[in-house]
Design a protein around this nucleic acid. Structure first.
Length: 304
DNA sequence: GTGTTTGTTATCAA
DNA sequence: CTTGATAACAAACA
């Protein structure tokens, strides 16, 4: 499911393609996704340009020329897939047309398409990216947990500040700050790493992977962790996220990048989804239990 | 029909 | 107020 590496992959893809372009039409096929008031949503985004694409944890924020932000959360099965106008023209499709993306194994729009945006090219001679063509952006979401929402710049700052803990891959992600999130806490390692208000961006896949790489059992209590173990975990989190981004994220089933392609990191997972398979390190069998209400994968020999 | 999958939030308890 | 644990949400699949 989309965690930090997947959302960052989408952010980078869409930043390249959408910055400088103007939203010229919006089609809402499922009003639940935009909060139930289609007209309000449409008037907030229609005619606005995308001037930047930000991310905090798993939340995307498209900065609009109005100064407002279009927030997008993919939750579990959300996808943001952009198709260029030239491709659309080539295949002779309009906004409701159909064409294949992501190595031809996915068609957009499809029955899980919830919102469609049409974009016009940037003004001629404009310096900012996006190339010279417009395009269409599809928000797909099989399970309809994801959402799109327009907020003011102030609201966006408040949301970023109040709902997200330390952000991996930024200068704020320091060992001292990381160590603090374990202090005076009575819960276990997995629950802490899953808590977005303490550390942003990790989900079930990368929590299990980071714990394996650090050699720590996910149900270890916070207070049982020794400073060297916290330090190891700290560096493993950064490493696992960086490698996963390099591989463009993990596609288990639903995740797609900004062009509809799959992420390649699935092939490099050590424990997640590998129950019953051999540990890549010690050749023992990977086991699975439940912790913090989530499936938890681990190697009984490599993790203590 | 049952259980499982997960990101986030609501709810309740301490 | 904070913290923690659990259920609920949604839809598909084995």
């Amino acid at each position: 499911m989309p965690e930090l590496p997947e959302v960052e992959t989408v952010r980078r893809d869409l930043e390249k393609v959408l910055v400088g372009k103007k939203i010229t039409a919006v089609e809402i096929l499922d009003k639940k996704i935009v909060g139930g008031k289609p007209a309000v949503f449409v008037s907030a985004v229609n005619g606005k340009k995308i001037v930047g694409v930000e991310r905090r944890g798993k939340l995307l924020a498209f900065k609009l020329s109005s100064g407002e932000y279009l927030l997008a959360h993919l939750k579990m099965t959300g996808q943001l897939i952009c198709v260029s106008l030239s491709l659309r023209a080539k295949r002779g499709n309009l906004i409701a047309g159909g064409h294949q993306v992501g190595k031809n194994d996915l068609t957009v729009p499809n029955k899980f398409t919830r919102v469609i945006f049409a974009f016009s090219p940037p003004a001629r001679g404009g310096a900012r990216g996006g190339g010279s063509v417009g395009g269409t952006l599809y928000f797909n979401d099989l399970r309809r947990f994801g959402y799109l929402k327009v907020v003011s710049a102030e609201e966006k700052e408040t949301i970023f500040k109040n709902n997200f803990g330390i952000e991996p891959l930024t200068p704020d992600f320091k060992l001292s700050a990381f160590t603090k999130i374990f202090r005076n806490r009575k819960t276990n390692l997995k629950a802490i790493l899953m808590n977005q208000k303490l550390i942003s961006g990790l989900g079930n896949i990368y929590v299990d992977e980071a714990c394996f790489n650090a050699g720590l059992l996910p149900w270890r209590s916070a207070k049982s962790l020794k400073p060297p173990e916290i330090k190891k975990l700290f560096s493993c989190i950064q490493k696992v996220i960086a490698v996963a981004i390099k591989n463009r994220g993990t596609t288990f089933k639903d995740f797609r990048d900004g062009a509809g392609g799959r992420g390649a990191h699935y092939n490099f997972l050590n424990v997640y989804g590998r129950k019953g398979e051999k540990c890549r390190k010690c050749k023992n069998f990977i086991k699975k239990t439940k912790h913090a209400g989530r499936g938890t994968h681990f190697c009984p020999k490599c993790q203590r």
